[in-house]
Write a protein that binds this DNA or RNA. Structure first.
Lengths: 336, 336
DNA sequence: TTTCAGTCTGTGAACGTTCCCAGAGAGGTG
DNA sequence: CACCTCTCTGGGAACGTTCACAGACTGAAA
């Protein structure tokens, strides 16, 4: 299959172009001080020989790998049930590829996984880390700080906001938008189902909710979920049992909202007539549910792009990087 | 951040252990002919120095990279809307990590992307390729055959079944199971919405459908979708317009089935009373829809595992690898 | 005792780059 | 004309491994 001729090296290119190794290397790296003639000759020789750079050789001397790791830290298996990841992964891969940086996926679901990630990074196998959905107190994060590797996160790492740069949607304001909307529509008994409080999405969306409702948002109207559909369903059931007079609920993710809809249907409540339901994310599920979800759109592609930008800047030696917070928008459909 | 001491090399380990480079290398590679004493000393020295292997250096001499690429070839942006990918990605990452092989993601959505993938592989940046959802006639596949790299696919690559090993669910038999079930339930006007016919899932599920219905499955009862929810919706609408007397429909993916449900609801048909709907995949959406989907479960994790197994075998030099076909099961819920 | 096979160890040479330094030539300035 | 600066080029050395080979030692067989 294919010719088995040895792959051409920089030496071969140099020979064909009639210049030295050094000059070829300079062309390859866009260095200064290459005459137009030499430049052209090298370009021609590269095309002629079909030369491609050997990254291992380059890495060996530069101590750079040209790759970054995306670490998905999730205790449960839910990982991909959440469409958020997909968007992040796709966007990040694309953007990085444009800079010829490759994206390695690593899953840090349990401690064994986490150790592997740490070993990998300590081994200098990547220039940077892109943390996704990191929970407060994750030991991985602390280990990271001891390793000379660029690290950024999608969403703040609670407790490490000042040391790990991040990009995120404006979770708090997004929650305010939805809560305000529910209030304006005349709802009076508004509950919420939060995400895990050790994630920024869990904590900040609850804060935004409380910002609008103040003390009216008592304990009895708050229930916690884990971002899964099933978690949303049982949280809604608990909520209904405890406070049957609820007339609206703000659910911190669309997937959980889908679960909440099932619970409401099971309880014989109509949506939105009896209970209005607001989601968060504007993910694909929001259109699948019946009725379609009124939700808060977060600009995930842009979040991913900004996170990548931060990471590349960090790898290039940037020092103090400010977090990037992107605005959300309310998307009104039929559930509220 | 962290000590800036140079990373220990194999030389440092050798010095601490009181042996030579060669011996350390032999321990690292589980080579024969290392005395128990030397082995222990090296292990101790590795722990003491905190040594980690430099992969770039190893790659340079072994011509192996320790990484494989998962190529998602999708013309559209739909990519991740389909939960199939998520499962494949997660499972493959895990399994490969167990062998210390890292997974690089590449997206081949357009020709520019495809060229980048080819350049990457031609550059020897990976030991193997894991093709996902490849369409017949993809130029990437032909390019691949000219590059000395191990390649496997999830799902047959139509037209290249004999040259690219693959693992897949038994799409044809799965479609037969569903169609048979619909027939047994007494439905007489059974239609189908297929996937793209240049993918194995599209072609084989239609074949399975036709296996059961024979000539009764006329052109008028077949409509084509693109695996997206919206595609399923419009395909269903076309079907209803053309053949209003349909009493069941087999949809080649759950996501398209969700779309079909919307179209049926819009047309005022009850599911399953007026029209029964059968899906395929048993993905998360199957539970979200209303009513929940009766569908065909394909063992995606196992498919991913088997594909990885094939890939690793190929990298290790295996020659003739037979495709692996895994059984599907019918999952009865409420939509049919 | 000699010979041989098997085990174990050390070392030079390579892998394909980049980095750095030395030096040649061109052009400008005092 | 001497000197300097700037541009451009070539080539030695290094990056951290693995590989192949040579050689030392051991124990068993002839």
């Amino acid at each position: 299959m294919g010719s088995m001729a040895k792959r051409p090296t920089i030496h071969d290119v140099a020979a064909v172009a009639g210049v030295s190794r050094g000059t070829v290397s300079r062309v390859l790296n866009d260095d200064r001080y290459v005459s137009p003639a030499a430049h052209a000759a090298v370009k021609r020789a590269i095309a002629e020989t079909g030369y491609v750079l050997n990254r291992a050789a380059r890495s060996l001397v530069t101590q750079r790998t040209g790759s970054v790791v995306m670490v998905l830290s999730e205790p449960q298996e839910r990982l991909f049930e959440d469409p958020t990841f997909s968007v992040l992964l796709r966007t990040a891969t694309r953007r990085l590829a444009e800079r010829d940086v490759s994206l390695v996926m690593m899953i840090a679901g349990n401690d064994g996984d986490r150790d592997r990630v740490i070993r990998y990074l300590r081994g200098g196998h990547a220039d940077g880390v892109f943390l996704v959905s990191t929970h407060a107190g994750d030991k991985l994060v602390d280990a990271l700080l001891d390793i000379p590797v660029a690290a950024v996160a999608q969403g703040a790492v609670i407790g490490r906001e000042n040391v790990i740069p991040y990009a995120a949607a404006d979770d708090r304001e997004g929650a305010r938008q939805m809560t305000r909307y529910l209030v304006e529509r005349g709802h009076r008994r508004i509950a919420t189902i939060t995400g895990p409080l050790d994630t920024p999405g869990g904590a900040l969306r609850l804060e935004g909710f409380a910002d609008i409702l103040g003390r009216k948002a008592g304990r009895r109207l708050i229930e916690h979920g884990d971002y899964t559909q099933l978690g949303g369903e049982s949280a809604m059931a608990r909520l209904l049992e405890r406070s049957p007079d609820i007339d609206a609920v703000f659910v911190a993710s669309d997937l959980m909202a889908a679960g909440a809809l099932s619970a409401l249907r099971a309880a014989g409540r109509r949506v939105p007539e009896d209970v209005a339901v607001g989601g968060f994310d504007d993910s694909a599920v929001a259109l699948t549910t019946h009725p379609p979800l009124t939700t808060v759109r977060q600009p995930l592609e842009r979040v991913a792009e900004e996170t990548v930008r931060l990471l590349l800047a960090l790898i290039d030696g940037a020092e103090h990087l400010e977090p990037v917070i992107l605005p959300t928008t309310l998307v009104v459909r039929e559930s509220a």
